[in-house]
Structures are given as structure tokens and as C-alpha cells.
């Protein structure tokens, strides 16, 4: 009984004390808080050093997304590369957690510090691939998934990826 009374009084005291401390909030947007350079905001889709889109439509971002706000469909280009026929993110659901960036095996998805995406119409928060794709490599300048992966594409034959031997001659009996 006495213990709960003390607890109540201490709570009241703490609240009262906060009336005289400095406010942590700022008058946004007139006043802007300091944000770290790698603050997690809106995502972009980047390109590899050769200028082709990095996304291979593997669906890992979609499955990692805790609010399920990414949807895409894979397609195969004539040169053999997988690509997203559409890549849609519903930013009105996005919580900018960065799980998609972490899941992305090709460094295609990268988070930017931009979070200021207010709209009067929720529909405008739906971004398609055209809105997301940028003309650069983002944070990872040299990574090119198809240089590492064993999949053959136009301009990179079997055995030409990183750490690969030339294709086996299956007709040879030599040791």
C-alpha cells in the first residue's frame, strides 16, 4: 500500500520535473534536426558500373519486407539477364527499416537519407521502377553481380566470371 503510494508520488514528481527541462522536439520543418549521413529513408534502385540495372528480381526484398509493401515480377531479357518487369513499392506502408537493403544480394536497393515524402494523395506514395531507378551505383561503386555469378549472359560466357575456370570439355578423358 505504502509502496504504491510512493510510486505514484514519484511519477507525479517526474512529470513535474519535465515541465522545467528543455524540449527535445524542434519546430520542424522550419527547424531541422541533425541527421546522420546514412540516415535510413526512401530507397532507390541503382545501376551496376556498366550502367545496367542491378536488380535481378530475386524477390528477397519483397519477402524480407515486414509490411509487405514491395511487389515485383521477374522477366528475362534477351541477353539472359533477369530483371524486374515491374518493381513497385508502396511508401505509404514503408517503415524505412532497411531490411530490403540488407536482403538485396546485388546491392541494387540502397537507402537514401531522404524521408520527406509528404503527399496529400496517398496514391502518389506508390512508386514504380521508373521513379526508383537512379543513374548511378550508389554506395557500392564496383560491385557487379553478373561478374561474380555463374549465370551466362550476353558478353560474359561460362567460365568468365570471377574465380571461374574455363568450361569443362566433357569429351576429354585426360586427368
Amino acid at each position: 500500500m505504502l509502496r504504491s503510494l510512493i510510486s505514484q508520488l514519484r511519477t507525479l514528481g517526474t512529470v513535474l520535473q519535465h515541465s522545467f527541462t528543455r524540449a527535445e522536439t524542434v519546430e520542424y520543418p522550419e527547424q531541422k534536426p541533425y541527421l546522420a549521413p546514412r540516415y535510413r529513408g526512401r530507397i532507390v534502385l541503382t545501376r551496376d558500373p556498366d550502367g545496367d540495372e542491378r536488380c535481378v528480381a530475386c524477390n528477397l526484398c519483397a519477402v524480407a519486407c515486414p509490411v509487405d509493401c514491395i511487389a515485383l515480377q521477374q522477366g528475362v531479357r534477351e541477353d539472359g539477364r533477369w530483371y524486374p518487369e515491374f518493381f513497385r513499392i508502396n511508401f505509404s506502408r514503408c517503415i524505412m527499416c532497411g531490411m530490403c537493403e540488407e536482403a538485396c544480394p546485388t546491392a541494387a536497393i540502397q537507402l537514401t537519407p531522404d524521408f520527406e515524402m509528404c503527399e496529400y494523395d496517398r496514391q502518389s506514395m506508390v512508386y514504380e521502377k521508373e521513379h526508383l531507378l537512379i543513374d548511378g551505383t550508389g554506395k557500392y561503386h564496383d560491385y557487379n553481380f553478373y561478374r561474380v555469378s555463374g549465370l551466362k549472359i550476353f558478353g560474359k560466357d561460362k567460365g568468365e566470371a570471377l574465380n571461374e575456370e574455363p568450361p569443362v570439355d566433357v569429351k576429354s578423358l585426360l586427368p
Partner: peptide
């Protein structure tokens, strides 16, 4: 996946 984006 994609429940909130498939038909968006």
C-alpha cells in the same frame, strides 16, 4: 509477400 503493393 507484397500484399500491400500488389494492387497498389
Amino acid at each position: 509477400s507484397g500484399r500491400t503493393a500488389m494492387r497498389a
